[in-house]
Nucleic acid binder design. Sequence first.
DNA 1: TTGAAAGCGGTACCAG
DNA 2: CTGGTACCGCTTTCAA
Lengths: 350, 350
Amino acid sequence: MTIVDVAADAGVSPSTVSYVLSGKRSISAETRRRVEQSIRRLGYHPHAGARALASSRSNILALVVPLRVDQNVPVVMQFVESAVTAARAYDHDLLLLTKDEGADGLRRVANSSIADALIVMDVEAADPRVPVLRALNRPVVLIGVPDQPAELTCVDLDFVAAGAVCAAHLADTGHREITLIGPSPAVYARGTSYAGRFLKGFDRTARERGLRAASHACAPSYDAVRACVDRTLAEQPGTTGLVVHNEAVLPAVLSDLRQRGRTVPDDMAVVAVCPDDMAENQSVPLTSVAIPAAELGRTAVEMAMRQLNGESYPEIRLLSPRFTIRASAPGGDLGDPAEHDDPHRREQGR
Amino acid sequence: MTIVDVAADAGVSPSTVSYVLSGKRSISAETRRRVEQSIRRLGYHPHAGARALASSRSNILALVVPLRVDQNVPVVMQFVESAVTAARAYDHDLLLLTKDEGADGLRRVANSSIADALIVMDVEAADPRVPVLRALNRPVVLIGVPDQPAELTCVDLDFVAAGAVCAAHLADTGHREITLIGPSPAVYARGTSYAGRFLKGFDRTARERGLRAASHACAPSYDAVRACVDRTLAEQPGTTGLVVHNEAVLPAVLSDLRQRGRTVPDDMAVVAVCPDDMAENQSVPLTSVAIPAAELGRTAVEMAMRQLNGESYPEIRLLSPRFTIRASAPGGDLGDPAEHDDPHRREQGR
DNA sequence: TTGAAAGCGGTACCAG
DNA sequence: CTGGTACCGCTTTCAA
């Protein structure tokens, strides 16, 4: 089944079939009808390789994901799902690469023209892949913001704002001493920028609002969580609010608090940074900043497509956090214990 | 940068360069050295489309995954990770498709020669994609076993054996009344075969060992878990052993039991079906049958490659379950309460 | 509005 | 052991 067969069947030339498919020149209604019918009748699908060779477009986007299972699993999945869906809407497919392939993998995929553009997740502050990507001469979209993003398009959640919103909510609802349970030490060690950016927003807002604030990295295990809470209660026993920026330990934190006899939210308010469905499905529904994985995936694909069409110049887009109040850290208007009420609290979102 | 440039640089013909790359005919050491050096110096990467066109091999495997976030998330991720890694070892890349694309997506990818072979996860009993796959005339590997697998290669965990092992362990350690908390009702509704197969092994073994056994589907929410445990305790109050074949609700089950004041394993033994790292990282380490996601991914790729090389005929391969005893349902030799000891217990694995 | 034909960059057959 | 070259199937320019 080639374009020649279709052309013969429809009684036109191959180029006409090609143009019917691509819409790059006008075709009489009658001709189009005949060609489309032949295509359907014969079950014709253009050969991807031939098309890529002739047009220098593969209609494939490479997606580089951190497939290490150490963290973020549901976030990565949601991201990937929305990215493939968005890509299909632009008639593109997604090729999956792992972070392990490193810079060589990027070069291979780009230089062999397997992919038209690259989307790279989990970008670190001084990511060695960044200079390579810049030299690739192909559209690139980074998820996350490296130290030197020059000339590269980036998109990410505005983690500074997210940290600020979490601290502000606790301040608004009367808490005076709060603690951030952050990502695993490994994340800080790798210099993944979101960890530091979130902390920055958290710290700054806590300071501005006159709160006493601490923060601890926390590995994804029950023992690490226990140690982390131990430390919190020892160093800052007056802590009444926890911000958990680490999806993997959410169940552990809630379970640990329960074992200590601390009720959420009465003895300890908890604000999380995680996908909404995860926040809704804990033992206590969690007040949270949503990680907009789906929106990031869709946006990344759109930015890549725009670059492919030459309609875009480098840009760093930070998505505003969406904050949702649930049971684990109610707003002042939800009838929580009056002693924590604060008449000066702000609006819930931003 | 084309093969002609490399040939000129090395002072040989294009075909020689091609043969150096493919190894399909013998090349003198000296020539090979010169060609390889030119390739490196020029940073040459063969054009994937051109290669696919000429050789009718894209070196791409299509992987169809259930990207709905409703469940299985870590399992799918692990599977995908090991599949990409295995594919790279065979010099192939992975194209990601979602189940949503359905039969049309399979036809598109196969007929346009984007992919050389297809690996399809989450296959249902009467999956409408199965006949389509059979007609595709390309290598296919199914993860899961449909009702009519004729002519198609399948690989999966031996869920019948897995269900049997779980029930047997509880029987071996003295339990007389046990309950299976199964997958979400949606999974049964879709007719995903693993649910029924596990139940079959569980039921049969329970019967053989003279146990009283019940089973309930369970949606992935705290409420559903609570209802499920309520029902278990109401209908069969003597239940002392739970088998949980539903990764999503594991934390909820443990948390619910704790809230009811039931200690694991003393008041209630728990056996899970889940990946090992998940079993190890619950509030109580879980005795479990491992879901061998990584092994499945690797095996699926190997089976696909073997078919591509014409070295294989249709086969259904069921991986034997690997059972690991941890704290939530100790073996008789682990010093658990003596009243549950059973001198006739068998070996732990199979 | 349509057709003819020259590539796109490899592969693999046919020669030598 | 190596070279020459006819394709692979589609896109796109040039002509009509």
